[in-house]
Design a protein around this nucleic acid. Structure first.
Lengths: 210, 210
DNA sequence: GTAAGTGCTGACAAAGTTGTCAATAGCGGC
DNA sequence: GCCGCTATTGACAACTTTGTCAGCACTTAC
């Protein structure tokens, strides 16, 4: 039962490329961002999750703050790309609006990007974060309506439509099940039915006012 | 230049009733809750803000966790009361919906209650927090519509209307200015115009479908 | 093979956090 | 005026977290 004088052999050391290591660390940090917000990101937890020691994280990012900045930027960029892709993917025609809402909703749910956005919005020093390019969407919608029926609706009306849709989808991605249950909506497909209902509502409004 | 042997007289000690102390501490903790979320509440900061030492806070609440629980409960209850009051205050008639939205919006902005709600929703272990009694509102709305035009709309339609309104107002209270600016809405009264626009939209929908 | 570059690590330091405890002091009741 | 209750406090302990640093070890170039 004598303890050997020599220290036990250290676990094998895995060596990644700097690129791979950064990605793995960002993945772990993003999981924490979604779960506990930017202030909940702990170097030690991130390191343990990746399977490295915490100085390694500092080695790759310099400081905790830089890591948070990097993961926030990556998450928002990724969300932005996904949303743009969803908008582009939306088919012309009948169910365009519904498909569009579904696509954006999926982007917001993917890996909790909606939660990440909300966390960052709450924790941001003061609107220091980028917008979600709502302006482009509003202008695109307005152009479409103008083409169909000139002067049928103001630009602001289109801006409000976009804001309302974004608000509904974002809120759904953060506390959707909670709200649906809380309002008494039953059934598993409540969220999908809500989106379809919202699509009809927006379509009716746009159709009514131009 | 000799330093006197006796320690300088300690600052006068103010003694509140336990009631008063708890209130003052909860006020300070609530400010921190709104600003930095439940995880951002620091005993030392709260204590400094109130003008006491941090063991005093522990004396009154037992633990940090109990303090967070107390402040969260108080904030949500207060918000709930304010919202109910706003709903009751809404006049019958023409601008009922607009006044209602304005009232709820004000309740959400008062001392950052909307932010507090969102922080708590994000940080909550798993929907462990109470709903905002959306169900009651949905049922009240449905009853009103039934009385006006029986079987004109499903209950779920009313539930969705309430969810949509709540989503829009809550999102506005958290990142309203950000979204309005981001969408290109100009002018200082953008938020108010958005609410008025939303009121018209909802009214049109309800009028259309019963 | 061996030398250079660097991903990675353990050990340590510094600062901040919650919580404990014995002692102090303000306030009301007698 | 005295006493008991308790709000309040400074000092201290235990823990966590970020950050530093010197050195180790894996990969690549030569």
């Amino acid at each position: 039962m004598t303890r050997p004088r020599t220290t036990p052999p250290p676990p094998p050391r895995r060596r990644r490329t700097a690129q791979e290591a950064r990605e793995a660390i960002l993945d772990a940090a993003e999981r924490q961002l979604v779960a506990s917000g930017p202030d909940g990101i702990r170097l030690q937890d991130v390191a343990r999750d990746v399977g490295v020691s915490h100085p390694t994280v500092l080695h790759h990012f310099g400081s905790r703050e830089a890591l948070v900045e990097a993961v926030a930027t990556r998450a928002l960029d990724s969300l932005h790309d996904d949303v743009l892709a969803a908008l582009r993917r939306a088919p012309e025609g009948e169910d365009q609006v519904a498909a569009l809402l579904d696509g954006v909703s999926q982007a917001l749910h993917a890996r909790g990007q909606g939660r990440a956005l909300m966390w960052l919005a709450l924790a941001a020093p003061a609107g220091h974060r980028d917008d979600l390019r709502l302006r482009e969407q509003a202008e695109a919608l307005h152009a479409m309506r103008e083409a169909r029926s000139p002067s049928g609706a103001t630009l602001e009306d289109s801006q409000f439509v976009v804001i309302l849709a974004a608000s509904a989808l974002l809120t759904q991605s953060v506390l959707g099940p909670h709200m649906l249950r809380g309002a008494g909506v039953s059934g598993a497909q409540g969220a999908a039915r809500f989106r379809a209902w919202l699509a009809r509502l927006l379509l009716a409004h746009v159709g009514r006012e131009g």
